[in-house]
Structures are given as C-alpha cells and as structure tokens.
Amino acid sequence: MPAKRRSTDERASGANVSDDLYEEIDDEPFDEDEYEDEDEDETPRKKRSRALSAMSAGEVGQRHIAALTGRTSEGVTQVQPAEDGWLVQVEVVEDRRVPSSGDILALYEAEMDMEGDLLSYRRLRRYRRGRGDSSEAS
C-alpha cells in the first residue's frame, strides 16, 4: 500500500483527522522525487512550541498541585501570565472537618513554563473555610 500524506490544504485547515491515518507507510524506501515541493525556495517552518492557553495552564497547574500535595483541589483561583510561562494559584483542602465549614484550606502557587512543565510551587497561606479573605474587597 503506498504512503498516504496529508496535503498542504488539509494541514493548513487543521482538519481533525487522526494522524495515524496519514502515517500508514509501506515497506518501500522513501522516494524524494515522488513528492514535489510546491516552492523550493520556501524555508522550512519552525517547529511550533506547544504553548498553553490560560485555560489549559490552569488545568495543568491544578493537576501539578494535587499530585504534589496528595490533597483534594477545590479549584483554580488565579491564572496569570508570567515572563516565560504561567503562575497558577490553586485552593486545596488540607484538613477535612465536620462540619465542612471547619475545613482547613491552603492556597498554593505553581510556576510553570509555556509548555506546562512545573518550575516551582509553594504554599502561600492556610485558612479556615468560610473565613473572609481580608485581601478581597467586599
């Protein structure tokens, strides 16, 4: 079976087709002459980095904090672009109590690069659930 290659139009349109459909390569050696370049003067495209959006950065940061602390995450409270990545703040339940209004929560901050790799994390503060945050305006 001959090799199937994705056309330039399909790549540019971002067609949502599984890459494995285009990677069915036969056992015959690759023949460069079989595939002509549209413009030989065109420089090769740089490999795109897999930079995260703010939404993705929040999700990735939340997973990092939950994995490192071994605690249940309540949610992401802040996602902020940093010089070379993202700062994500995550609220975590550190100690469950009955009733839940007595839970001890903590706010953690994860610093990640643009691809979502964790560079550092730290606990910013601990507090009891339901206790007003003095840093927020009422």
Rank of each mutant, 00 (worst) to 15 (best):
V88F: 01
S18M: 07
V79L: 08
N16I: 02
Y22T: 06
R71D: 04
V60C: 08
I65A: 04
P44I: 13
D26K: 05
L87K: 07
V76K: 00
D27C: 05
E23L: 15
A12P: 00
G75H: 06
Y22K: 06
G58I: 03
A82V: 01
A54L: 08
D26E: 09
D27P: 00
R71V: 00
Y35M: 11
E74K: 10
P81Q: 13
D95T: 13
Y108A: 07
E32K: 15
L21R: 12
D95N: 12
D95H: 05
V79H: 06
S56K: 14
E23A: 15
A57W: 11
A51D: 13
T72S: 12
A106E: 09
V92A: 08
H64C: 05
E109W: 01
A54D: 09
E23F: 13
E111T: 04
V93M: 04
V92H: 03
Q80F: 02
E40N: 06
S13V: 10
V98A: 08
T72I: 06
L107W: 03
L87W: 00
I104K: 11
F30K: 06
L87Y: 02
E34D: 12
E36A: 15
V98K: 13
L52E: 03
M55R: 10
S18I: 03
R96W: 07
V93D: 05
T77V: 10
E111P: 00
A12K: 05
D37F: 14
R63I: 00
V17T: 05
W86C: 03
G14H: 04
E91V: 12
V98D: 05
A106K: 12
D37T: 07
H64W: 06
L105P: 04
D37L: 14
E23I: 12
D95Q: 13
A67R: 12
D31V: 14
A15I: 09
A82L: 03
S56Y: 00
R97I: 01
E91C: 11
R97W: 07
R45F: 08
E23G: 14
G102W: 03
G75P: 05
K46L: 11
V60R: 14
E42S: 09
G102R: 09
L105Q: 11
E109F: 01
P99G: 00
N16A: 13
D27V: 05
D84E: 11
M55F: 09
E36V: 15
Q78A: 10
E111D: 10
R50N: 15
V88Y: 01
D19S: 14
E83C: 00
E23Q: 15
R71K: 15
D27T: 05
I104W: 03
E111F: 02
L52S: 02
L107T: 07
F30L: 14
E23R: 15
T43D: 14
V93N: 05
L68G: 02
S49H: 08
S49W: 02
D19P: 12
A51K: 10
R97C: 11
G58E: 01
S18H: 14
A54P: 08
E94A: 13
R45E: 14
D37M: 12
D41C: 07
E109H: 01
A110E: 03
D84N: 13
W86S: 01
Y22E: 11
L107Y: 02
R50M: 13
Y108I: 07
E32C: 10
D20K: 10
V90S: 08
I25D: 09
T43E: 15
A12Q: 04
S53G: 07
G58T: 04
S49E: 13
